[in-house]
Design a protein around this nucleic acid. Structure first.
Length: 861
RNA sequence: GCUCCCGUAGCCCAAUCGGUAGAGGCGGGCGACUUAAAAUCGCCGCAGUCUGGGUUCGAAUCCCAGCGGGAGCACCA
């Protein structure tokens, strides 16, 4: 299809002669790119303390081909921020690298019968060239690739550190299995509809022994520390993380099951309703259900086997459909309620999840909708223990007998209405809890349980441990040896890295087992005592790679340690992190977790990796996500070829707030290019020399320039790039006018204004800005010219327009001094004929004066 | 179903504290330059802030309700 904006002229059409009067972005790109390549202006020196430091980081990309419009947006914003802080006199660390392990490379390799390395590193070369052309001010000397042994060696080191701390462990459990990619997935990688975020396959459950990182040990800290990030992280991301961790507060209650050796513990957030429990439900895919069924009657054993099979066949999608009819079977076992000795039937049903809480619940149908649905379906009893009609307020902890009598109106019976009573009320039918309100009943019942040793206060989390094993080739080998007796032996640090074997001769096709297991020479090894052993054949989830890479940038070539704590002290945490909201949970949570682990291990002095996060929106086309199949794909390469890097970057900045989506059909890269040409042209028209004294310049133009100098930092730090661009356009319009019909091109104010334009424009459109700076007579780079402080004397206005309102409607405007006193302003307002006319013969009842802007006269009658 | 965010001109978007609704761009119209066109330069704001209430001297801004759009969560005990 024809791209809507691909017809931009390459120049203004004039012959691009030697007079330098024609703006040709492509010539500028060539010219300045060569200069940056030679001079490497953006490499930073760790040892220099001459300037304060900032660490501005873009989420490093996966090398999937070439850059796309989404990259163009995100990396434009990151670069604007980095260049801004340079102009503010900071030494800015702005590195880039490649998240280069992962499935697409492996899948491409399988398809073409080549090595994943080839595909990966060819893509990197292409994207790297695009980044350079796009004008990103990266410190290329720190480039890293997670797929290099020099990098993944330290993944292995990190794994060993977690292993030593007991934070990396093996567990046999039901895992999410992706039948297309033939590998396991972390919970976080399964979409809410039960499909794989990567392959789109419907994820199934499979039982495997896998490596986990014990992120649940950090659940409280990961949750509580979010408070510190409030205001500097997107509220949405914080909310998503809170939700994901999902802490619930309640109690564990132990039930005895007749004929079962162990007590069965359930978690509940409503221990106050314990007296209303009428049955127990255990998850069908739990160990407990299997045991209870096995010890039951043959009929139950058979029914259970059928039910379990049926449950496991159902997809996550079906299972999570909230509206679906409940299923389950009785296990013919009896539990004893610890507080009142009531005998309760035990059921198994798939509305109870095996891996949340203890995989079992106490069912209180009167006060829980799910339990009620189940009870009504299977004819189980419903016992009301909270009178939700009772007049209970938080201020009255205990209800008197009089109140009980007065308010004893039976509420709607959930068994009749089908609606559970989940609201607050006062306890009834609950022995020692009767009359208490919810909070007090919870407190009391926990005391009773603790005294009896049958329960305790407890917290549960939605967050699960992080499954890191992957049965694929293109990842970091797990540095563990398995002895013949099944013993585990970490590879000594001195023997790292455990390198990936050559893929030649290995069948990388997914078959449910790691291809590394077939690399005989690689997998078979010996323990230090000479006995035979096998290497762990799995590789790590690539989110391990990205959970600490921001630390590796501090010195990616250091082969003696992952990073130098002293460097981390200098640069980290990251001052501004920029990237997509698609990483709101996975990547950011894992990076926060690893940071806290490294803090606990004494390697870091901070506990949060990213002080501030900016999420860019998406780039859409015609209202929807771009995709080849939709036919609305806008190619980065063709946009770059049509408009040039500067216009593209400027368009991204000008399109609107960075976190909003950009519809490419709504924006105009040609408009951006036109503006750049206009600004650039002015830089060649200035006739005053660089050393000209500003002071004699046109006062009104100077005021406008200095107003922009005053406003720009606040706007930029609030990411209002679009407003800054608008202000630059405004100033360029004013300069144009000053040259054509004002004081002329030789006025010092014209030079001052266009210099400020060049410096600010360098954040957005670096090629054009560099060339403007050169045309203005400077030999050094505009990237480091510095943003001047505004002259305060130029920020005060000579006069200001005050408005006079009568009953809220503007009736007159007065030119007054900005320092006018309220009484003086009121006098002027009352003297206005227009005001007097509009007051007429009504009575003035109130006069509000907000000097110097507003007078409002309120009348009556 | 629950929670959060957003509705300003034909379109994308501005509007520090509640104080003149319009900065900027796109589109459109008119004009200058030109033999003509392109490019360039100049001029023109076309809506009263989704709707209905409320608070206030004063509301795009704060509160309530509704409508429309988007996002997140959703059998988590």
């Amino acid at each position: 299809m024809t791209l809507q904006h691909s017809t931009a002229p390459r120049s203004d059409g004039r012959p691009s002669g030697d007079d330098g009067s024609s703006y040709d972005i492509f010539a500028l790109q060539q010219k300045w790119l060569a200069r940056w390549e030679a001079e490497k202006p953006f490499e930073v020196d760790d040892d220099s303390n001459a300037k304060p430091r900032k660490y501005i980081l873009d989420m490093f990309p996966y090398p999937s081909g070439d850059l796309h419009m989404g990259h163009a947006e995100a990396f434009a914003y990151g670069d604007i921020v980095a260049r801004y802080w340079r102009q503010q006199g900071f030494q800015v660390l702005h590195p880039i690298g490649w998240d280069s392990f992962g499935l697409p490379a492996e899948n491409a390799a399988i398809k073409r019968g080549t090595d994943p390395r080839e595909w990966t590193y060819a893509n990197i070369a292409q994207q790297k060239a695009s980044f350079k052309l796009y004008g990103n001010s990266f410190d290329w000397s720190r480039e890293l690739h997670t797929s290099d042994p020099e990098y993944y060696k330290w993944n292995q080191w990190l794994f060993l550190k977690l292993y030593e701390k007991g934070l990396a462990y093996r567990k046999d459990s039901w895992v999410n299995w992706d039948p297309i990619d033939q590998t396991v997935l972390a919970n976080e990688q399964v979409l809410p509809d039960g499909t794989s975020e990567r392959s789109g396959a419907v994820v199934v459950k499979k039982q495997l022994t896998q490596w986990y990182f014990k992120i649940t040990d950090y659940a409280d800290r990961l949750l509580d520390d979010l408070n510190q990030l409030e205001g500097s992280w997107p509220a949405k991301v914080i909310a998503m993380q809170r939700n994901w961790i999902g802490r619930s507060i309640g109690a564990d209650v132990d039930f005895v099951i007749e004929g079962h050796p162990d007590r069965v513990t359930v978690f509940t957030t409503r221990p106050d309703t314990l007296f209303g429990t009428t049955f127990l439900v255990v998850a069908p895919d739990s160990e407990l259900a299997a045991q209870l069924a096995a010890d039951s009657t043959p009929e139950v054993q058979a029914a259970f086997a059928d039910y379990l099979e049926q449950v496991q066949k159902s997809t996550e999608v079906e299972r999570q459909d909230a509206g679906r009819v409940k299923t389950g079977i009785p296990l013919q076992r009896t539990a004893i309620n610890p507080v009142n000795g009531e005998r309760l039937p035990v059921w198994t049903a798939d509305y109870v999840l095996a891996d949340y809480g203890h995989g079992a619940v106490m069912a209180v149908p009167a006060h829980d909708q799910r339990d009620l649905d189940f009870a009504l379906k299977f004819g189980l009893p419903v016992k009301v223990v909270v009178d939700t009609n009772a007049p209970v307020t938080g201020a009255i902890p205990v209800i008197t007998q009089e109140m009980l009598d007065a308010a004893d109106v039976p509420g709607p019976d959930p068994a009749d209405t089908g609606v559970a009573l989940t609201g607050a009320g006062r306890m009834i039918n609950s022995g020692p809890l009767d009359g208490l309100n919810k909070a007090n009943a919870i407190q009391r019942v926990i005391e009773l349980l603790e005294a009896a040793g049958t329960g305790r206060a407890a917290k549960t989390y939605r967050l699960r441990d992080w499954l890191i094993s992957r049965q694929r080739y293109w990842g970091t080998p797990i540095p563990i040896l398995h002895g013949e007796d099944g013993s585990l032996h970490p590879v000594p640090e001195s023997e790292l890295p455990v390198r990936l074997p050559d893929s030649a001769g290995l069948d990388l096709k997914p078959k449910g087992q790691s291809p590394l297991g077939a690399a005989t020479d690689w997998v078979n090894t010996t323990l230090p005592d000479g006995s035979p052993a096998r290497r762990d054949p799995d590789t790590m989830d690539t989110f391990v790679d990205s959970s600490w890479y921001f630390l590796r940038f501090l010195d990616p070539n250091d082969d003696s340690r992952a990073f130098e704590p002293a460097d981390a002290e200098k640069w980290a945490p990251v001052d501004q992190y920029v990237g997509g909201v698609e990483h709101a949970i996975l990547h950011l949570l894992y990076a926060r977790f690893i940071t806290k682990v490294l803090f606990d291990l004494g390697y870091l002095s901070f506990t949060e990796p990213f002080s501030a996060v900016l999420n860019q929106g998406m780039v859409l086309m015609d209202g929807s996500k771009m995709s080849k199949s939709r036919g609305n794909l806008v190619e980065f390469a063709s946009e770059l070829a049509a408009h040039g890097a500067d216009a593209l970057r400027l368009t991204m900045a000008f399109a609107g707030p960075p976190e909003d989506d950009i519809d490419w059909a709504d924006v105009s890269p040609t408009g951006s290019a036109k503006f750049l040409a206009r600004a650039w042209r002015i830089s060649g028209e200035v006739t005053s020399p660089p050393e000209v004294e500003w002071k004699g310049g046109d006062a009104s133009l100077r005021r406008q320039t200095h107003r922009l100098l005053a406003d720009a930092p606040g706007l930029l730090e609030a990411f209002k790039f679009n407003v800054v661009v608008a202000r630059l356009m405004e100033l360029v319009n004013a300069i144009r006018k000053a040259i054509d019909s004002g004081p002329g091109a030789g006025d010092p104010a014209v030079r001052e204004a266009i210099e400020v334009v060049a410096v600010l424009l360098s954040l957005f459109s670096p090629y054009t800005a560099e060339d403007m700076w050169e045309r203005l007579g400077y030999g050094s780079s505009v990237a480091f010219a510095g943003l001047r402080k505004p002259d305060p004397t130029l920020l005060v206005e000579d006069s200001i327009t005050a408005i006079v309102q009568v009953d809220g409607k503007v009736r007159d405007k007065l030119e007054v001094s900005p320092t006018i006193r309220a009484s003086e302003l009121e006098k002027l307002a009352r003297a206005s004929a227009a005001v007097a006319r509009s007051i007429g013969d009504r009575e003035v009842v109130n006069v509000i004066v907000k000097a110097p802007r507003v007078v409002n006269i309120a009348t009556k009658g």
